[in-house]
């Protein structure tokens, strides 16, 4: 496959044709905050609204995960407009997040912590109402413990489950503030393909999924 080179923040980087701009930047060690994107996704959901970049010639910032690389791209990943969008998106995520890092399994390896540090904002956003979901813990799954108030609804677990097992045994239910992960139809161990699969736990950017059987 042919490689394409283009410009990012006054640097020339190259990437294979067809790759997303986000993937290319990450490979070149240019960090762009992101939660829902995973390497190898053919149709990134672009739902976390964090990977915005500015492209010369385009008025609005665009999500880097949905933009295939082109040789005429001139990209800036650190403009004030981009940072403002990212901070707002992260603050909104944190306003529905139960921030209790000390007791969270993802402490120190959490994407939210990392992104907040990168963007220079606190974990408890001011001026935003906090919204919590009920119940705090969903333990209907035979192997998983799910905490909706830690979940950022990125959909990585659903994506990996579908690619591993041909169909997703996790889905999103309801909508808006009430959107939650659901294990509907997966609450009986015999309906599940692999009891020891921990792919969803491994890809979770936060600590929303945990194994019932320990590490």
């Amino acid at each position: 496959m042919s490689r394409i080179s283009f410009q990012v923040n006054d640097r020339k980087i190259s990437a294979p044709e067809g790759m997303s701009l986000l993937g290319a930047c990450l490979n070149a060690d240019i960090h762009i905050p992101h939660l829902c994107y995973m390497e190898g996704m053919t149709e990134p959901p672009a739902s976390c609204r964090l990977c915005f970049v500015e492209i010369e010639g385009r008025r609005e910032p665009v999500t880097a995960c949905t933009l295939p690389v082109r040789s005429d791209l001139k990209v800036r990943t650190d403009t004030p407009a981009v940072r403002r969008l990212q901070r707002t998106a992260l603050r909104l995520l944190l306003s529905v997040h139960h921030v209790d890092c000390k007791h969270c399994i993802a402490n120190y390896k959490c994407e939210l912590q990392r992104t907040a540090r990168f963007l220079g904002i606190g974990l408890k956003p001011k001026h935003l109402d906090h919204y919590s979901k009920e119940p705090e813990v969903d333990d209907t799954h035979p192997h998983l413990i799910h905490r909706p108030n830690r979940c950022v609804l990125c959909g990585r677990c659903i994506h990996i489950c579908e690619s591993r097992h041909g169909r997703a045994y996790i889905a999103m239910a309801r909508r808006g503030f009430d959107t939650v992960l659901t294990f509907y139809g997966s609450t009986d161990a015999i309906d599940l393909p692999a009891p020891d699969c921990t792919a969803c736990i491994d890809v979770c950017p936060v600590g929303a999924l945990e194994s019932k059987h320990g590490e």
Binding site: R167, A168, Y169, A171, M172, A173, R174, T182, G185, S186
Partner: peptide
């Protein structure tokens, strides 16, 4: 009925439930 619909369309029941609750 959710299980039947999922079975008919060869989808995961969770997906059918997800769409229905939306």
């Amino acid at each position: 009925a959710i299980y039947m619909a999922a079975d008919h369309l060869d989808l995961a029941p969770s997906e059918v439930y997800g769409v229905a609750t939306f």
